[in-house]
Write a protein that binds this DNA or RNA. Structure first.
Lengths: 93, 93
DNA sequence: CATATAATTCGAATATTGTCAAATTAAGAG
DNA sequence: CTCTTAATTTGACAATATTCGAATTATATG
């Protein structure tokens, strides 16, 4: 589970993750997920670094990625996000 | 906020945090918090490293620490934990 | 005071990370 | 086939992180 937190521990990578969430939620009716090339400009890192970070998010099972022709589509793994939330939940008053 | 995730990204530090949560919840009636010396044995790292990790958790504002005579007491910052939970919450179906 | 326990500081070694530039692959469009 | 855009791979480098041993400080107790 530390792997998930590590995946979110870098500011640029966290931003990348949050953009994916945002894009996916914005298109939840069609459930297209997030086209990576649509968010690359809003991040201040180069394409190789984005590719590298995406792999880390996927390796932590926070997202799934799938190639759609020329494009890469990312989707959030909601189960994993729920697991993280459960771990952090506090049980007292 | 990435700082919080970084604080939890190291396996030993995450374990340390979870032990603090557990100890605190176990004694929530008295709200003593967690005596650090009571959990050092269950972690497979030395005292200097624990001291260092505690500082990182405190720096990320995940915990508060307070000296009680010879001992150090740690308490979870519930507000911060709630903020993290809010950030990770998903808003679709 | 002398001793013991809890915790911190310091310095160093080793490992991991984040990032980029350059080259490469993947795939579609003309 | 050629060109363009999207993404990946490789190799490298600087910056950070993790951990420990040794020494030190803080505090309580006999």
């Amino acid at each position: 589970m530390a792997k998930v937190f590590k995946a979110l521990s870098n500011p640029n990578r966290l931003e990348l993750y949050l953009q994916i969430v945002k894009k996916q939620e914005a298109s939840y009716k069609t459930s297209y997920g997030c086209l990576i090339c649509e968010i690359t400009e809003s991040l201040n890192i180069g394409a190789p670094t984005i590719s590298h970070h995406l792999k880390e998010l996927a390796n932590a099972e926070l997202i799934f990625t799938e190639r759609k022709g020329k494009y890469l589509v990312a989707r959030v793994n909601e189960e994993m996000v729920n697991e993280v939330n459960d771990l952090l939940k506090l049980h007292n008053g």
